[in-house]
Design a protein around this nucleic acid. Structure first.
Lengths: 161, 161
DNA sequence: TTATATGCAAACGCTTTGCATCACG
DNA sequence: CGTGATGCAAAGCGTTTGCATATAA
């Protein structure tokens, strides 16, 4: 079962976001969008560079960074910091304020909207006197498939890709 | 009004933590502890290096990094990522699980314990099927003093140090 | 046609490391 | 004393940049 349909949709979304931001749709950006879309999880610049080389797409390192920059600035991807200290990127399904839950085993991630931080923040403002202007929430754990794998029964449709 | 009393307490705490971890209490570590304690807020390695030089403490760059490493590994300080993308450190008042609220203007920070993430996480686990093993919450805003300053009335005991 | 984007390689900034020396316990 | 810590400087690593070339619109 390949994921190319879902990937294409995601790639398109990235490209549309670039277009909307007034960026040119170059072959390289199409390639990067495709690479990002074919990963449904967190990835880093090195991942994309490796993928690009493996598929003979020949996108230069600098272009990957530059494309990630643009995509980040328009909110189509977000940069996050793994518990390990490395930072990686995730594609965002939504442009609205949200957070991410990342599988620490396969990197698959889900966007979380409306998780109900507002009352917590209001309480903290009351207690500390600070005015809270921004917050970052990152959750880490195991996706259902990886839970099954970790549990020892590594088959049963629990593939990560 | 100097802050040396509070600083000494904080420095002592750091040193005791090092001691408890089986580390030697060298002159350099005492110096770094002092430097960290004299900042009640987020700081980075460069800050400490600058301070060390300014005060003629002569602690080498490598030692600062190595000391921060140890302190981080024992939970006496924590590494966090500012909205700007830089990462910095904060001293932790507690060894228990907690989060940080950092003033984006003066870097002063407070530890937050028990902010009530548990029900939120339980809900997310239910909705996503993920098993959440860890989470990071970072809050950013303005401390009371900096709110006053930003409001235009820059006096009134609102100093940051 | 022309502003934008790319590739390359060098530069960059932060962090780590190898090794000889030093000093805490 | 002996192990663990330090200083120095060089190396490492991820990321950014300058500039000539290529290309989308």
């Amino acid at each position: 079962m390949n994921t190319s349909h879902a990937s294409d949709g995601a790639a398109d979304e990235l490209l549309r976001a670039l277009e909307a931001a007034g960026c040119r749709l170059t072959a390289e950006r199409r390639a990067v969008a495709q690479l990002i879309a074919s990963r449904d999880g967190a990835f880093d610049s090195a991942d994309l560079l490796t993928d690009s080389r493996r598929r003979n797409l020949g996108v230069a390192r600098a272009t990957i960074f530059r494309t990630l920059d643009v995509l980040t600035s328009i909110g189509a991807v977000e940069r996050l910091d793994l518990p390990s200290g490395e930072h990686s990127y995730v594609r965002c399904d939504t442009r609205a304020h949200h957070h991410h839950l990342v599988c620490t085993r396969c990197q698959r991630s889900v966007d979380l909207e409306q998780i109900g931080m507002m009352p917590i923040i209001a309480q903290i403002e009351r207690e500390t006197g600070y005015r809270v202007d921004g917050h970052r929430v990152e959750l880490f754990g195991l996706c259902p498939a990886c839970q099954a794998i970790e549990a020892g029964r590594s088959g049963e449709g629990a593939e990560t890709g």
